[in-house]
């Protein structure tokens, strides 16, 4: 929150129809909402739609916001719901691979135990590694992905992430852990492949 205005003041001004306050809200939270939408929708056009829908819905229903969570947590929740509505629209031609995963099943036993963490630092600093990591995050199974993004990339606390998703703090911790293990496995496969002479 900006030093110049408290969240309570901002909410009060938005409720009173103050457009400058709505614009300030975009400046404070727009990028975070967009990043979440982008990582959930996996393309810029849908992410933009989700973000627009999020702020439209937020301003329309601002009187219903009771302040039990922070404003940013509430916006994340609206964005998550908007994204899920779109992602779950039935399509006869596509089957989400996420649906085929047992997301609440016991932890996957790691398959790849190549010790890649001691590779030269330059091997980690390439744009290819960064792109692979970003793509891998976007490919995380859906339930793991959103908890992972909120907790690890957007910096919400475990409880704030739980509030945004409407799940328990324990469930957030489990999903975060599974997400980390899943990414570790992906990176391990990647670095093993990099070691094979081409």
């Amino acid at each position: 929150m900006s030093d110049a205005i408290t969240e309570e003041d901002l909410l009060e001004r938005i409720r009173n129809g103050d457009q400058a306050a709505c614009a300030l809200c975009i400046e404070l939270y727009g990028t975070q909402v967009y990043r979440l939408a982008l990582r959930l929708m996996k393309n810029e056009a849908d992410a933009e739609d989700v973000m627009q829908e999020t702020f439209l819905n937020a301003y329309k229903s601002i009187d219903k916001f009771e302040g039990r969570s922070g404003l940013s947590t509430w916006l994340y929740r609206i964005a998550y719901n908007a994204a899920m509505m779109r992602l779950r629209r039935p399509s006869p031609y596509t089957l989400s691979i996420d649906e085929t995963l047992q997301q609440d099943s016991p932890l996957t036993v790691p398959k790849q135990l190549f010790d890649w963490c001691c590779l030269p630092e330059k091997d980690f600093e390439t744009s290819e590694v960064r792109e692979f990591l970003e793509e891998s995050i976007q490919e995380l199974p859906e339930k793991l992905r959103v908890a992972f993004i909120l907790r690890e990339l957007e910096g919400l606390s475990t409880q704030e992430s739980a509030d945004a998703l409407g799940i328990s703090a324990d469930a957030v911790k489990k999903r975060l852990h599974r997400g980390r293990l899943w990414l570790r496995e992906r990176l391990s496969d990647y670095f093993v492949e990099q070691q094979i002479p081409g």
């Binding site: 975009i26 727009g30 990043r35 933009e48 890649w116 980690f124 960064r130 990591l133 690890e152």
Partner: peptide, 25 residues
């Protein structure tokens, strides 16, 4: 390797909202 994984994603650049997207919002 798990510790390194966490380090890598915490230190990667975050996507920004493009200016045109912000303007359309």
């Amino acid at each position: 390797t798990l510790r390194k994984t966490v380090y890598l994603y915490r230190n990667m650049p975050q996507p920004e909202m493009p200016e045109q997207v912000r303007e359309r919002l």
